[in-house]
């Protein structure tokens, strides 16, 4: 099943297309873990059928942007030092 994701950006320019990005994204899938975050390498596209998962965007003070993207999560990135995991 396709996953739904959300990202906070200050500027839509942070979501460059056609290259790998590292973003902090949160899941919008229904269930107990909705709104939890992870850091991930991703690729985004303004073509909504480019990737299976969808991405919606919120701006600096939580405003929902009307721009929508599709997204591919390439891999999870763990930033937290191993001693705390």
């Amino acid at each position: 099943m396709a996953n739904k994701w959300e990202v906070f950006v200050m500027d839509l320019g942070e979501l460059a297309e056609g290259k790998e990005l590292e973003l902090t994204i949160r899941t919008l899938n229904d269930g107990l873990h909705k709104y939890t975050y992870q850091r991930a390498k991703v690729e985004v596209s303004s073509k909504l059928d480019q990737f299976a998962d969808s991405l919606q965007v919120r701006l600096g003070r939580g405003q929902l942007s009307d721009r929508r993207f599709s997204i591919r999560v390439i891999e999870r990135v763990e930033r937290m030092p191993a001693r705390y995991l």
Partner: peptide, 10 residues
């Protein structure tokens, strides 16, 4: 809870 729509988290 998600207290306000658009908050950075629960």
């Amino acid at each position: 809870p998600l207290v306000h729509d658009g908050d950075g988290g629960r």
